[in-house]
């Protein structure tokens, strides 16, 4: 069912054109944050309005849309966003990673490898990787302009001096095509290697902060590190209690008040596929 009072995929055509122009420039300058005239959406800022606007600008009626939050298709906000597009765009939806043409995500990259023809849209809360080192946009814009990333390296180095390692576990900064330092959104650093050399188009939308950025397929994306302290993706040292996977990112679930816990895949489609004995990422319908 579609909501007849609204245009296809909710946004008016002028707004979509504005977002589409920003997306093309974002692809042309990988990792650079393109300002765009973010609209007020019928869901709160901070709840995926940037991702929703990017998805709305990209969708065609032929798409199959998957929406995940924390890797899962059935978390409440993922359900809410998926319903929004069912109502306003009438597109087919799916939980299958490999079966989807557009995947909107919050905080995860699916475990199953993506392929050409797929678009991964990230919801981004704070697009500026330097924001927590320098709160002023006027300053950080100048730092990107001059490729002046010393502050970031100092911060990472201080971590090593104090903790013996870089104490950033998610939203781990990357350098794109040897030019822009980019925030990959709050994905766990376990997912960082999947940013690089990915056959899919990766688009990032930050609604409240009014920024769009992108990684074209097969981009060079390097997690910041030091020669003597190389980047290591990390995960809990357990196997999934449901499917037995030892190479997936895990949720920790507390099962009683006596300290018992279990670990299970955060990517629900990946886990369900393995439990059903299907190839990875060909899970639910």
């Amino acid at each position: 069912m579609t909501v007849q009072d609204y245009n296809f995929a909710y946004l008016d055509e002028q707004t979509k054109r504005m977002i589409r122009r920003a997306l093309l420039k974002a692809l042309a300058v990988p990792g650079y944050q393109v300002p765009f005239a973010s609209r007020e959406m019928p869901m709160p800022y901070g709840w995926g309005t940037g991702g929703v606007q990017v998805t709305a600008a990209c969708l065609t009626p032929d798409d199959r849309l998957k929406v995940i939050d924390q890797g899962a298709d059935d978390t409440t906000n993922a359900v809410s966003i998926r319903r929004f597009f069912q109502r306003t765009a009438g597109v087919e939806t799916t939980q299958s990673t490999t079966g989807a043409t557009v995947i909107q995500t919050r905080h995860r990259i699916p475990e199953a490898p993506l392929s050409e023809g797929q678009i991964l849209v990230y919801q981004v809360p704070i697009p500026e990787p330097l924001r927590f080192l320098e709160p002023r946009e006027t300053e950080t814009r100048r730092m990107h302009e001059l490729e002046e990333y010393g502050l970031m390296h100092v911060k990472l180095y201080e971590d090593i001096a104090r903790h013996g390692e870089i104490a950033t576990a998610y939203a781990y900064p990357v350098k794109v095509e040897d030019r822009y330092v980019m925030d990959p959104s709050p994905i766990p650093k376990f997912d960082n290697p999947k940013l690089a050399d990915n056959p899919a188009i990766q688009l990032f939308g930050a609604g409240r902060e009014a920024r769009i950025y992108a990684l074209p397929p097969y981009s060079r994306v390097v997690s910041l590190d030091f020669e003597d302290h190389p980047f290591t993706p990390s995960r809990a040292e357990h196997a999934c209690a449901l499917c037995g996977a030892t190479d997936s990112y895990l949720d920790e679930v507390i099962t009683d008040d006596r300290g018992s816990r279990m670990f299970s895949c955060s990517d629900t489609d990946f886990c369900a596929s393995r439990q059903a004995g299907r190839p990875d990422g060909e899970g639910g319908a």
């Binding site: 055509e13 042309a28 032929d62 074209p216």
Partner: peptide
């Protein structure tokens, strides 16, 4: 325009 943009997006990407 949605179909056309998708072609342009894929082309630029």
């Amino acid at each position: 325009s949605a179909h056309a943009f998708r072609a342009l997006l894929e082309a630029m990407a």
